[in-house]
């Protein structure tokens, strides 16, 4: 319960940050992506400020024996630069360029109630579920291989 409350507060702060910085506006993201047009570098400042604070926070977190409300911290362990990493980044990049939405701002913009945003989120959820099922299927077929 306390972990959910902490996550709610974090989500509120995250959503407020995206709203204040106008990263919720697809036209602002496209203004950043349009480097040969009328370039709007605001996203660079958002990322830089966020990275500095995150870097400091993660430095502290590494020195905790355990997180405040949880038994242990789950740091990512993957190391390989593989086909899923690169292929997924290309597909996401195409989607990002087409709409100007990455997952965070898109979810924040559900607050507008716009049908276009709701349809985008529904399609995004379908894409996520499709990939989850595909990977589960791959793992399943690997596990089914007879041992040598």
């Amino acid at each position: 319960m306390i972990r959910a409350v902490a996550a709610l507060v974090c989500g509120l702060i995250f959503g407020a940050g995206l709203t204040v910085s106008q990263m919720t506006e697809t036209q602002k993201i496209k203004g950043f992506l349009d480097i040969t047009g009328y370039w709007d570098p605001s996203l660079v400042v958002v990322m830089a400020a966020a990275l500095i604070v995150t870097f400091a926070g993660y430095w502290l977190a590494r020195r905790q024996t355990a997180p405040v409300f949880s038994a242990r911290a789950l740091w990512p362990t993957a190391k390989d630069i593989d086909v899923p990493l690169v292929g997924g980044a290309v597909l996401f990049g195409v989607g990002w360029g087409l709409i100007g939405f990455c997952p965070g701002p898109a979810i924040v913009d559900l607050s507008t109630g716009m049908p276009t945003v709701i349809v985008f989120i529904a399609a995004m959820a379908v894409g996520m579920i499709a990939n989850n099922l595909l990977r589960r299927h791959e793992r399943g077929s690997l596990a089914a291989e007879p041992a040598e």
């Binding site: 990493l85 997924g88 996401f92 898109a106 985008f120 990939n131």
Partner: peptide
């Protein structure tokens, strides 16, 4: 299409 690519791509890429 943008939503599908964003959902599938971000999950695949992690």
């Amino acid at each position: 299409v943008g939503g599908l690519l964003t959902g599938f791509g971000t999950q695949w890429s992690g």
